[in-house]
Each structure stands twice: as structure tokens, then as C-alpha cells.
Amino acid sequence: MAIKTISPSEAVELAAQGARLVDIRSPDEFRRTKAVGAESRPLDVIETITGGEPIVFMCKSGMRTSASADRLEGACTGDAYIVDGGLDGWQQAGLPIVTDASQPIEIMRQVQIAAGALILLGVLLGSLTTPVWYGLAAFVGAGLLFAGATGWCGMAKLLAMLPWNRRAAA
């Protein structure tokens, strides 16, 4: 049987009846914002979740859970569900969340901000001064291409070493 997608309000009803709410986002995403009552089980390390109670999975937008539906269903010994719209849908439904603004934004968002700023800077400097600055944009673009192809992001590794990110991981 395929894993069923349910509305955020249906997820709350199931949780009230004993279902477990499992967030599959990365630990840095979970530390910053989470649904009240959710537990962290990152997708990249999730294995069998024991217990016969229903499991309600969520991610940020519902895309990760939908793309991994077979794997998530296989990780459960009981019934499995996916929250439609993920945490975004949960928030739009006005359901309670916990936000810790002292936690840094997720590493991948930091990568997106830094990469976008560097590419824009390279293009602007290349246009206004000398074309050699286009090399900066090309270098960052090549790094993003490599990260997408291999799953290893050098910029994320560098950003993770910055003081605000090391404090959060401790």
C-alpha cells in the first residue's frame, strides 16, 4: 500500500491519538524551526522506527518526504503518512511551531546566500572593471555544479567551520 498524504490538521488528529510526528530534515533545519511535538530523524540516517504506532513524516515543503515515500514507508513497522506541504503547510494551517532564532539559518541556505552574492559580485565587477572578475562567478558556478553532481559541497564545509555554526552544532 502506498504511503498516504494527509493534511496538517489530520496529522494533529493522528498525533492526538498516539501517532509519532517525525521530521526528516537535517539537524540544523530542525534546531531552528520545528512543529510542536516533532522528533528529529534525518532522512540520510533514518532506519527502522520501531513501535506499532502510526508515523507521520514531514520535511520543509513535502517534497523530500514525497520523493522518499517508499523508503519512509519501509522504515515503519506501523502505518505511515506524509504531511501535505510539510512544515510550510503546517505553519500555513496555523499549527504550533517552535522557533529558536538563536540558531543559525540552515547551512544550505547559507551556501545559497554566499554563492549568489559571490556570483553577483563577480558579474558586477566584471562588467564595471575588468572581465577577469567573471572568473569568480565561473568558479562559484563550477563549485555548485560539482556539489550537485557529487553531493559534496566545499562551501558548506567552510561555512560549517564559522563560529556561529560551530556553536550551534555543540
Rank of each mutant, 00 (worst) to 15 (best):
I55Y: 04
R167A: 15
F139Q: 14
C59K: 03
S66F: 09
G85Y: 02
A101K: 15
I3A: 13
G62M: 10
Q112M: 12
G151Q: 03
D44E: 11
S127A: 14
T150V: 00
A115S: 14
V22W: 03
V56W: 05
G141S: 09
G94N: 12
Y134Q: 09
G78A: 02
M1D: 13
D88Q: 15
G148F: 02
Q103M: 14
A11P: 04
A67V: 03
A35M: 05
A168Y: 00
C59M: 10
E13F: 02
T50D: 14
M108I: 01
G116T: 07
L14H: 03
A117K: 09
I119C: 08
L14W: 02
L14Y: 05
V111D: 09
L72Y: 02
Y134I: 07
P54G: 06
G94S: 11
A160H: 08
E47L: 12
G126F: 08
A35Y: 06
L95A: 01
V140D: 14
V132T: 05
I119F: 11
Q17M: 08
V45Y: 12
W152M: 14
K4M: 11
L144R: 09
S61Y: 13
L125C: 05
D28T: 04
I107A: 14
G151V: 03
P54W: 06
R64E: 08
L128K: 03
R166N: 08
C153I: 09
Q103A: 12
R32I: 00
C59A: 07
T65V: 14
G94A: 04
F57I: 02
L124R: 10
V111Y: 10
A115L: 04
A168R: 03
E39T: 05
N165F: 04
K157I: 13
C153M: 05
I97C: 10
L95E: 03
E10V: 04
R166Y: 06
E10I: 01
K60I: 02
L72N: 07
V12A: 13
I82Y: 06
T99Q: 14
M58L: 15
R41F: 11
A160C: 06
A101M: 10
P27R: 10
L14M: 09
S61N: 05
R31T: 09
E73G: 15
